[in-house]
Design a protein around this nucleic acid. Structure first.
Length: 880
RNA sequence: GCCGGGAUGGCGGAAUCGGUAGACGCAGCGGAUUCAAAAUCCGCCGCCGCAAGGUGUGUGGGUUCGAGUCCCACUCCCGGUACCA
């Protein structure tokens, strides 16, 4: 594996010496550079994080989402990988056999954009970025097993994408159909959704068109039900992620049925699907997509309709745009028959109906669907109320929520179905449709099959060959991998592979005649759908995954951004199930526990370009303009003072130029400070708005830890502490208890804060007989977050040879006992003071003490107590 | 639009089961040290008020002895929305 990775070589010292890099005599001042280099050399030479399968130990597979090699690490990476490293080190100290690997999600669009800008092949740009970022990861001291490193742009990885794709083709899981894409008519190229800005191409400013082209799909819908049901087997996943996935899969129970019609003398059926068959008697029109055959047929000899259909083909294909655009339509002049009444219903073409979704046609019930209501009002179409909720008045003036209510309504004006409620109405109507052979109940999913074809160069080639005689033919296994040439430089005018004769030319595996290679590449989500399993089979050139997967998978903890809550995580779950179907793995789900970290946000500044495109500015290039309340209202460019647009805060990204490079942080303060600050700043699941201040505080803390250690070493001769507990000891153990509780909740910010509190306590009682014990606890609790400084101090103070091998501390109950506690005193629910009582005091004693207290007397103002509430160990509330 | 989440001092955040709101830090202010500065150390620090006290967790209602926490209705912000990763 290492042979294909262009990265910083790791120097491996093969000696058996325990400390090949002994730190120099302890410095009084904190020098993170030396301390960190020495600790990292120690982990490297001892192979501390080299993971080997060891069935005798409980395993812990700690997996972080691998980065896209965009050039430099950003704060989101530092946050993500620090969380992973804290968990890795914490579990290691608790006796687990831990694997924490790292790799590179190395195919993708930004490499092509960089290539266009710098005229450097994406391969070279990517390799350079990987080398730089790898060195950054190493300088942060993450406990990674670099011998399992992988990069998805290398053939020894992506050949298995190709191999599995061919297996899916054999199983009917992969198949071909048309897809709708964004087309830039000027650059003559397919645009990603991200490259479409307000309906225009980002580089050319030209209005984007929709275009239908062939593509390959993976039948994720075959697994829809299992993907949904298995969410219940994932208690270690956040509820919000499971909810989002369930809604995305969108299982619905409805009715698929047809409107019969006759056209050109032939009997035809217009199929639709609805979850509101109970409103079928309220249908006043139907709407079909612009690409629907019925629309195409109607447009023949109808110039106005043809023009409208053409207009529908402009604009982006994004769901958000489709849902918010103005709904437009035009009648086709074709009528279909209502399946139950035989009444004539006109078919319209609607710009909001999508060919790719369901049947590409919908029934319209304006009275009980908000969108149909607006559409009918706009075009003066009939609105027929067929659901009534007792006590509510129906009006055509404006849409009311209750018009779509499924719970309380009953059918009216629906003939034999009058009086039936939702479920009963659907049962009856579905039965009648079935009897007429015009439809039946059907379970449907919102989830669509996964289109994996990309008309782009920098991706995994789809292993197919096009032969004039034999059609599309799979590349035989023995000819894999289909290797992507690494020297192309895209220029924005389409896939450069189409101009590469040496790539294109091949012979048909079936007939042996000259043929052409497929030039589409795979969606990069394919690459990221199984990399975590490949880590476990690192270096195996003969199979996709081997026996070692059984030991490590599923991952015990997966950590990554919340932005991947649906697509990446769902595709990975799907890929896992396909691999299981093919007998490659035994587990059903890849990730036992999931931590979705919040995104790191920063301000976004932009400006329109003359062409109509958009350019972004980095925060350091601009000056903020604030209003009186201190809120940011705009910005000016530092360079020339010109006004630019303030776009609020948003996720740090290369394309928006609002990323913060952690490099200067590391150089100025050291890795421990950077790591500690990231953990301290906020809880992992919350979004984090970037701010430079606060880092100083983390650095000050490191310096204080160091000097306390230095002072403690000097007075180490004070002898061992007795068993007698002191207030310091009680406080340290109390904080330890809290820290351990918070670690279990993955709430690292309060663990960091507990460490600070421990040091505050120690500094106030440096001569306490338990100071050494207290400091040893502090070092161990702090070590997963700030591993270098704690490693160094552990050695300096002679606590042991390696803090990583030290046992994780547990609070001693004996240290926690006390004989008096303080209760809060309230009168009528308001805080009025406090009360000291003996630990074992009973309710009556507490009540009596409370009533007798001066503050209670004052605020009761002579009224007799109506009630006294005692919350044991907490408070007394006198209601007077 | 739809789906998911969030909102607490000047700032990041804490508050485990409905029980002292603002732990721990940042910034700020005052002091010590210093020729001076940096660094370091000590103290103050939600808002109104001289104080007693009042008030306060995005907005408006509600439940409760007691609500940041539970319920209802909203506002704004963030993520996703299937070709950014």
């Amino acid at each position: 594996m290492a042979a294909v990775i262009i990265g910083v070589p790791i120097t491996r010292c093969r000696g058996l010496a325990r400390h090949p890099h002994p730190p120099p005599a302890m410095q009084e001042k904190y020098h993170p550079g030396e301390i960190e280099k020495s600790a990292q050399a120690h982990w490297d030479s001892t192979g501390a994080f080299r993971a080997l399968e060891d069935p005798s130990k409980p395993k812990y597979y700690c997996l972080s989402m691998f980065p896209y090699p965009s050039g430099k690490l950003h704060m989101g990476h530092v946050r993500n990988y620090t969380i992973g490293d804290v968990l890795t080190r914490w579990h290691k100290m608790r006796g687990f056999n831990v694997l924490q690997p790292m790799g590179w999600d190395a195919f993708g669009l930004p490499a092509e954009n960089a290539a266009m800008q710098n005229k450097v092949p994406p391969a070279q740009w990517t390799d350079d970025n990987i080398a730089y970022m790898k060195q950054q990861l190493m300088s942060l001291g993450f406990g990674l097993d670099w011998e399992r490193e992988l990069a998805t742009c290398k053939p020894d990885y992506y050949q298995w994408n190709q191999w599995l794709f061919l297996r899916m083709l054999e199983k009917g899981i992969a198949y071909k159909k048309t897809q709708v894409v964004n087309w830039d008519p000027v650059d003559q190229t397919v645009l990603a959704n991200e490259q479409v800005i307000e309906g225009r191409g980002w580089r050319t400013g030209a209005p984007v068109e929709k275009r239908e082209i062939p593509g390959y799909y993976l039948a994720i819908t075959q697994y829809a039900d299992e993907l949904l049901a298995a969410l219940d087997t994932l208690p270690g996943w956040p509820e919000r992620v499971k909810t989002m996935q369930a809604n995305w899969i969108g299982k619905s129970f409805g009715v698929r049925f047809a409107f019969p019609y006759e056209l050109d003398g032939k009997a035809e059926k217009l199929w639709v699907y609805t979850t509101r068959a109970d409103t079928l008697m309220g249908v006043t029109f139907c709407a079909v997509a612009a690409e629907h055959p019925l629309a195409t047929r109607a447009a023949q000899g109808n110039a106005a309709l043809a023009a409208f259909i053409d207009e529908c083909k402009h604009g982006s294909v994004m769901e958000a745009d489709m849902a918010t655009m103005e709904k437009k339509g035009m009648p086709t002049g074709i009528f279909v028959a209502h399946p139950l009444t035989g009444e004539k219903v006109e078919v319209w073409v609607g710009n909001y109906v999508l060919m790719g979704y369901g049947e590409g046609a919908v029934m319209a019930v304006p009275a009980h669907d908000e969108r149909d209501f607006a559409f009918a009002r706009k075009y003066g179409l009939a609105i027929k109320q067929v659901i009534d909720v007792p006590g509510k008045d129906y009006s055509l003036d404006a849409w009311q929520e209750w018009y779509a209510d499924k719970e309380k309504g009953v059918c009216i004006a629906s003939g034999k179905y009058d009086g039936l409620a939702y479920d009963a109405a659907i049962d009856a109507i579905a039965a009648d449709l079935k009897a007429k052979d015009l439809g039946d109940k059907q379970v449907q999913y919102r989830l669509r099959d996964w289109g994996i074809s990309r008309q782009r160069y920098w991706g995994c080639p789809i292993p197919l060959i096009h032969c004039d005689a034999c059609g599309t033919v799979p590349v035989p296994d023995e000819q894999l991998p289909v290797v992507l040439p690494t020297d192309c430089v895209p220029d924005g005018s389409g896939n450069p592979l189409n101009k590469r004769e040496d790539f294109l030319a091949c012979t048909c595996p079936q007939c042996g005649k000259p043929a052409r290679r497929e030039t589409d590449t795979m969606d990069t989500f394919v690459d990221s759908s199984w990399y975590y399993a490949r880590y476990c089979s690192a270096g195996n050139a003969t199979v996709m995954v081997d026996e070692r997967v059984k030991y490590w998978m599923p991952a015990d903890q997966y950590i990554g951004g919340i932005e991947h809550a649906i697509l990446h995580l769902l595709y990975s779950r799907f890929w896992t199930k396909v691999m299981r179907t093919l007998g490659l793995v035994q587990y059903d789900e890849p990730f036992a526990n999931l931590l979705t970290q919040g995104m790191v946000l920063n301000h976004i500044f932009s400006r329109r370009t003359a062409k109509g495109g958009i350019e972004y500015f980095a925060p350091e290039e601009v000056e903020l303009v604030r209003d009186e309340a201190g809120h940011v209202t705009g910005a000016t460019l530092k360079a020339d003072g010109s006004a630019i647009d303030y776009g609020g805060v948003g996720t740090m990204s290369k394309s928006k130029r609002n990323g913060v490079d952690p490099q200067s942080l590391i150089e100025q303060y050291g890795a421990d400070t950077a790591r500690f600050f990231m953990m301290f700043a906020s809880p992992p699941e919350q979004t984090l708005e970037w701010s430079d201040s606060g880092v100083e505080g983390a650095y000050r803390f490191m310096k204080r830890v160091w000097s306390f250690g230095h002072a403690l070493k000097a007075q180490a001769a004070t002898g061992e502490a007795g068993s007698e507990s002191t207030p310091l000891r009680r406080e340290i153990h109390l904080l330890l208890k809290q820290a351990n509780y918070d670690l279990g909740k993955l709430q690292f910010n309060t663990v960091a804060s507990a460490c600070m509190k421990m040091l505050n306590a120690l500094e106030k009682a440096p001569a306490d007989p338990h100071a050494r014990e207290g400091f040893s606890i502090l070092l161990r609790v702090l070590s997963p977050i700030a591993p270098h400084i704690t490693h160094g101090l552990w050695l300096e103070l002679g606590f042991g040879p390696d803090i990583l091998a030290a046992p994780w501390p547990e609070p001693l109950e004996a240290a926690l006992v006390q004989d008096e506690i303080e209760l809060v005193l309230q009168v009528n629910g308001k805080h009025r003071g406090s009360l000291r009582v003996k630990v074992g005091a009973d309710r009556t004693a507490i009540e009596a003490a409370a009533l007798a207290s001066e503050m209670a007397q004052k605020f009761m103002e002579g009224r007799p107590p109506k009630k006294v509430i005692v919350v044991p160990g907490r408070l007394v509330n006198i209601v007077a």
